[in-house]
Amino acid sequence: MSERKKTATDAEKAARSADRKSNAGTTPDPWEACTRLEHGGDRSFAWSVREQVLDAPPEDRERIEGRLLDALRRAGLTDAGRAFVCQMLALVAGPRSVPVLAALLKDPKSAEDARYALQPVTGPEADAALRDALGSLSGPAKAGLIGTIALRGDKTVRAVLAGIQANPSEAPVVRDAAARALDHLKA
């Protein structure tokens, strides 16, 4: 017993000694590193997060969802990092994510990423968030939003869409999207 203890202590000493000679830094936290992702940069830490998301059993997805939402709040979040996190949220997000994504959806800078995450989220919370954003977005982003709303089959928005289609001050791309959405929701 004492011999084993002595051996372990020696190994620990050797490890500490090696640490002192090493110029390697501490392994980054992938959940933090993925928020600093840049296009063209090393995405191996984002890959690590992705693997955790994909492997999460159903009972663990709420925890994973929470970690992704935390990642969205981190200082230094890059555009590519936000896009990545939202793509991961598209796999696990539920009603809990909706308030965070709803806020991002109203900001033209983050609307695309938020809509990507929100589109597959079922339930009235997501429907309401998407409808609410109609008043905040314009141009192509609004057209894309209309497409998402129609694809989800939210028929409560038909009157709003009819108004958009008839509004000459809306961009043609938006009026086109409203017309197609109305046709889709008519079916």
Binding site: Y116, P120, A143, G144, I146, G147, A150, A177
Partner: peptide, 19 residues
């Protein structure tokens, strides 16, 4: 498998949509 079902499609970048 809810996650697998979400991988059947994806949101498109604006202004594009399947609708």
């Amino acid at each position: 498998d809810a996650m697998a079902n979400r991988l059947r499609g994806r949101a498109m970048r604006s202004p594009w949509s399947l609708v």
